[in-house]
Design a binder for these strands. Structure first.
Length: 236
DNA sequence: AACGCGGGGCT
DNA sequence: AGCCCAGCGTT
């Protein structure tokens, strides 16, 4: 089951994945880090032009670290989640000053940077250094929940622990970077949140959610509907 | 464990 | 109108 899954993701990536992104094949940890910070909770197509502008303005992390706050904030303007920008600058200055411009080369070192959580650390570690850390983002939660038929809510401590373990279990450690990239592309292109392309999916024969008709019921989130601030809408 | 942070695309 | 997006830091 797990072997079929991993092999299927790698095969899809090899034969059918035509998704292109400027930071694919990138080995410069600075560029990888920058792209991951920009893409946190942000669609690839929305983040792409920002990434290009930042790389153009700051080709190295030292140049970013030396830039004035206001100048960097202006480049970030419109992207949202502005704390990311502040943390990004702090991390750049940590690398530039404390590490003499050398980006950390271990998972622990990467994790210690401001604005870098479990997902981003695994992404950088695997993409830049092929270290065996599985990424766990919205795409991975969805793909794993559907294929393995898991209804444990993803936004709980138990869910995070379960999915983290499963993601690590199906990771081909020799191809960590390629596979991490592949499973996220697969989630974005085939196993989409709405109207997934199950008809053309090479994994559907073994996909628990597809076989049971539960594709639109997983992944599960525990959060209830929140009261919207605009109550007036209800009155009319 | 729950919450705040944001613009934007898709249905 | 609601959901989701290459999540993270704070409380």
């Amino acid at each position: 089951m797990k072997q079929f899954f991993t092999a299927g993701i790698l095969a899809w990536n090899e034969l059918q994945n035509d998704r292109s992104m400027p930071w694919k094949q990138e080995k410069d940890p600075y560029r990888i880090w920058l792209s991951e910070i920009i893409l946190q909770q942000t669609r690839v197509e929305q983040g792409r032009p920002y990434y290009e502008r930042f790389i153009s303005a700051y080709p190295t992390i030292t140049e970013l670290a030396d830039a004035p706050d206001e100048e960097v904030f202006r480049l970030w303007q419109g992207l949202g989640y502005y704390a990311r920008c502040k943390n990004m600058l702090a991390a750049a200055r940590t690398v530039a000053r404390d590490f003499n411009g050398r980006f950390p080369g271990t998972y622990e070192g990467i994790s210690a940077l401001k604005g870098v959580g479990a997902y981003t650390a695994a992404a950088i570690a695997s993409f830049a250094y092929n270290l065996p850390h599985a990424v766990l983002d919205g795409n991975v939660y969805r793909v794993l929940a559907r294929f393995f038929g898991i209804d444990t809510p993803t936004d709980t401590t138990a869910g995070k622990k379960l999915f983290t373990q499963l993601a690590q279990d199906v990771l081909p450690v020799q191809q960590a970077g390629t596979y991490n990239q592949a499973i996220m592309d697969f989630g974005a292109v085939v196993c989409k949140p709405q109207t997934p392309r199950c008809k053309s999916c090479r994994l559907s024969s073994q996909c628990v959610a597809f076989q049971k008709g539960l594709t639109d019921l997983v992944p599960v989130k525990s959060k209830k509907l929140r009261i919207k601030k605009d109550i007036s809408i209800i009155c009319c």
